[in-house]
Amino acid sequence: MTFSKYVALGDSFTEGVGDADPTRPNGVRGWADRFAEGLAARAAVEGRPFGYANLAIRGRKLPAIIDEQVDAGLALGPDLVSIHGGGNDVLRPKVDIDALAASYDEAIARITATGAHVVMFTIADPGLNGVIKVIRGRTAIFNEWVREIAENRGATVVDMWRIRGWKVAEVMDDDRLHLNAVGHQAIAIAALDALGVPHALEPIPPADLPVLSARAQRAADLAWARTHLAPWVKRRVTGRSSGDGVEPKRPVLMPIG
Rank of each mutant, 00 (worst) to 15 (best):
M1T: 12
T2M: 10
V7E: 00
S12K: 11
F13T: 06
F13D: 03
F13I: 10
T14A: 15
T14R: 05
A20Q: 14
A20L: 11
T23R: 15
G27C: 00
G30D: 07
W31M: 09
A32Y: 10
R34L: 15
R34Y: 11
A36M: 09
L39K: 12
A40R: 08
R42H: 07
G47K: 08
A53F: 00
A56S: 10
I57T: 09
I57E: 03
G59K: 14
K61H: 11
I65T: 03
I66M: 00
I66S: 00
Q69Y: 03
Q69R: 00
D71N: 10
L74E: 00
G77W: 02
D79K: 01
L80K: 02
L80G: 05
L80S: 02
L80A: 02
S82K: 06
G86D: 06
G86K: 04
N88Y: 04
D89V: 03
V90M: 09
V90D: 05
V90T: 13
L91W: 07
L91E: 12
R92K: 14
K94Y: 15
D98S: 12
D98W: 07
D98P: 07
A99Q: 11
A99C: 08
L100T: 08
A102T: 08
S103K: 14
Y104I: 01
A107S: 11
I108M: 07
R110K: 05
I111V: 15
T112N: 11
T114R: 06
G115M: 09
G115H: 09
A116I: 06
H117D: 09
V119Y: 03
M120L: 13
G127R: 11
N129T: 14
N129A: 12
N129C: 12
I132C: 10
K133R: 14
V134Y: 11
V134I: 15
G137T: 14
T139S: 14
T139G: 10
I141L: 12
N143M: 02
N143E: 00
W145P: 03
W145T: 15
W145V: 07
I149F: 09
I149W: 06
N152E: 13
G154R: 01
A155Y: 03
T156M: 05
V157Q: 07
D159A: 15
D159I: 08
G165E: 00
W166N: 09
V171H: 07
D173N: 10
R176F: 15
L177I: 14
H178G: 04
H178Y: 05
V182R: 07
G183N: 05
Q185E: 12
Q185P: 00
I187G: 07
I187W: 08
I187C: 10
L192N: 09
D193Y: 03
A194Y: 04
G196Q: 13
G196D: 06
P198W: 01
H199S: 12
P206V: 13
P206D: 07
A207K: 11
A207W: 02
D208P: 11
L209V: 15
L209W: 06
R215M: 13
Q217D: 09
Q217V: 09
R218P: 03
R218Y: 11
A220M: 04
W224C: 08
H228W: 14
A230I: 14
W232L: 15
K234M: 13
R235I: 13
R236S: 07
V237E: 13
R240A: 09
R240Y: 04
G243A: 01
E247I: 13
P248L: 06
K249A: 05
K249Q: 12
R250H: 11
R250A: 10
P251C: 08
P251D: 04
I256W: 05
I256M: 12
